[in-house]
Write a protein that binds this DNA or RNA. Structure first.
Lengths: 400, 400
DNA sequence: TCGACTTATTATAAGTCTTGAACTATGGTC
DNA sequence: GACCATAGTTCAAGACTTATAATAAGTCGA
């Protein structure tokens, strides 16, 4: 509604974006098809594709056999037009990956980090080192990079990162990185970037209204409304883990009582299992894996509790957001999902209203936890597409 | 993101919409100011306003004193350019109101209805009768009416109305009304239209991300994201009342257990009070009023429970939607609000995450229950503004 | 009362963009 | 090899916007 002013120039930009988007998201196409898909006239398509080809963003990709006429020449996005970098800053690692423009993985660098050593300086250093290493490996220069997307364990607001779990409170990470590179940066919550990856390449392909839940040690969600992430007034929307499912219930690490996270987060599940006398390995992931594969009455009981609470939580999501699909993700979600999905569906059905429930499918995510970096890399690409292939403005250095 | 094709023609439409919106929402303005506010050049503003004046949508509204130059002539939307009608279909009444284009009330017609007699036919008849009566009263013809907005007790999807509480399941109300009038119709959930009214004229003025809760006998919410209603995949978003706040909790009229509505809806509150031995009048509104004004230990206890559950529910809303403001509305909300607001705020603070909570203000609504019809009337106006003052296409009658 | 000065609006010229129709290119078919 | 079908390009026309110049309508001071 509150869109910016339109000038006749923006028409071209908009149409470039339309064409480029169609080409990017839906394979090689001929100019003719593009005209149909975008609704533009053939003349305009010819014009626009001409520009895109001249800019090196689009290339020809062979012909399609004709059956009685001039054969169509296919166009596609040039994967080598630019490099995109995705970064996953987790609680135990920093992962930097380079992709081509179509997001095929070209190089990977991973740094392990001890939990508790997350000084922002250290993280920034790792990111820059990983960036350099990846670029060297594929023989690219900084100018070839469209942008760097960074998925972080916390909220990002005005370039400041607030990550409770790593003890960051208003860390100016963007500014710190800016000292080491001029490449455009895109910072976002890792939950959001993983959601974005699932939306583009996983269980959310082609879906416009989705909620991607992320169950790990903690619990979050990424809400997609009409194809774009729903952010709320300051980018903090989708904090599903701290919705209350039981007044005066279990204590949560956020300090409140009865948060969903305390019931279905990995830590909450394991604590609960141990408190009832179960024994599992010390490592969280191993513990959860062992719990999921064991078939004791106790394990069954604990897992059933988890499924019920997850179902309740998902039911509420369906009521509130009326999504077309709910995707169950996160490393713990992946582990639990196959076993619990039927119970979760059943419980969600009990608690959601019939109509919205019938319209929502509940599915497992298709990408693993490595999707954070991939999703982060979609951020610069999304901007690139929206801008119709115009590179972000590069700041002009002031002389002397 | 998935916007429609742009043609050079749409530029004008977009700019007309910009100018008209500025004029509508922000009082009389001179052409000069309009140029600043909309970002258009003076020439374009002159052009566009010329058209709008020629179309009778905008009129001059006096001069502003000059201090050494040609005085500015003020422009404003012509209230008499069109009539808008808003309808409130409640569980006990059908209310039809006519407004001028700036939504000043011109005429009102109200029909009482016995609960349980909501045959769709009867309702449609009342709406059409009310429409006719209002138009006669103000001496307007059907062609003068920009549109009729209708707030309904249920979800609207593809022109079909699903209202559990009145026993409507897929009622084709739009088609039924179409038989009696050619005026463009806009059907929506009454909760949404009340929210819309609050957004334009009440506690949500100027706010882009808000959740307007509506507590009556039942409980709902209207979510505003970036200035427009958030609808989800089929218009059913915002079903706040049936989010679960207690696993295996109180039974709700929807059939599930532990719904928020069972704890903070008027019916739930009164049932609870009675079950603990309290006595109140039979009428729901009178009962709630008596409960709120009484100062017994029992009343205090019940109200405290309500405040806690409402606080929990609002805290979850804040976590999930990250709104700038949460507005407490509905007739029961209005009754309870003044007394419970401090407790509600406190409990919400306990359950929401610090950051989103700090950014959200929790306030009482400013309009009464009569806002449903007013809000319904905003629907045609919103469309009118978005279209830059183009009247909805009138179907051309096919020749006999 | 007149002329200089200020500010608001309107007219005009220049430039960008889309479209639709005419036109060219490239293959198959008889 | 003539003819047909389909793909893609070129170009004049029309619709907009913006800058700039021109015009309108006041105030102020002599």
């Amino acid at each position: 509604m509150h869109r910016g002013k339109l000038t006749v120039r923006d028409l071209r930009a908009g149409n470039r974006a339309r064409v480029l988007r169609a080409l990017y998201l839906d394979g090689p196409r001929s100019r003719h098809e593009l005209a149909e898909v975008t609704g533009l006239s053939q003349g305009s398509v010819s014009n626009v594709t001409g520009e895109l080809i001249a800019d090196g963003i689009v290339v020809e990709a062979g012909h399609v056999d004709s059956d009685g006429g001039r054969p169509r020449v296919l166009l596609r996005v040039n994967p080598r037009h630019a490099v995109v970098v995705g970064v996953d800053v987790g609680e135990t690692h920093v992962l930097v990956e380079a992709f081509d423009l179509t997001l095929r993985r070209l190089a990977t660098t991973k740094f392990a980090m001890q939990p508790g050593t997350h000084s922002a300086d250290e993280v920034a250093k790792r990111i820059l080192a990983g960036l350099r290493r990846c670029l060297t490996e594929i023989g690219a220069r900084q100018g070839d990079v469209l942008g760097v997307g960074i998925g972080l364990p916390g909220l990002v607001e005005h370039g400041l990162v607030h990550g409770q779990t790593v003890g960051w409170d208003g860390v100016p990470l963007e500014r710190m990185l800016r000292a080491g590179t001029n490449i455009p940066l895109h910072l976002d919550n890792g939950a959001n970037t993983a959601g974005q990856a699932e939306l583009w390449f996983g269980a959310g392909r082609g879906i416009d209204d989705a909620v991607i839940t992320l169950i790990g040690s903690g619990v979050g969600a990424s809400v997609i409304a009409e194809g774009v992430p729903y952010r709320g007034t300051s980018g903090g929307a989708g904090e599903w883990g701290h919705t209350t499912v039981a007044l005066d219930g279990r204590e949560c690490r956020c300090g409140a009582f009865g948060c969903l996270e305390a019931y279905i987060g990995a830590k909450g599940i394991i604590d609960r299992y141990r408190s009832l006398g179960g024994t599992v390995p010390a490592d969280q992931e191993a513990a959860l894996r062992s719990l999921v594969t064991s078939d004791t009455a106790l394990a069954r009981q604990v897992l059933h509790e988890v499924a019920r609470h997850a179902g309740v939580g998902i039911g509420s999501l369906i009521n509130l957001f009326n999504p077309e699909r709910v995707i169950l993700g996160g490393w713990a979600g992946l582990l639990l999902g196959p076993r619990l999905l039927p119970d979760i569906r059943e419980e969600a059905a009990r608690h959601a209203l019939r109509r919205p429930f019938a319209q929502a499918s509940i599915m497992l995510c298709e990408l693993g936890p490595e999707s954070v970096a991939l999703g982060a890399a979609t951020l610069p690409v999304a901007e690139f597409l929206a801008a119709g292939g115009a590179r972000p403005v590069t700041r002009i250095r002031t002389a002397g």
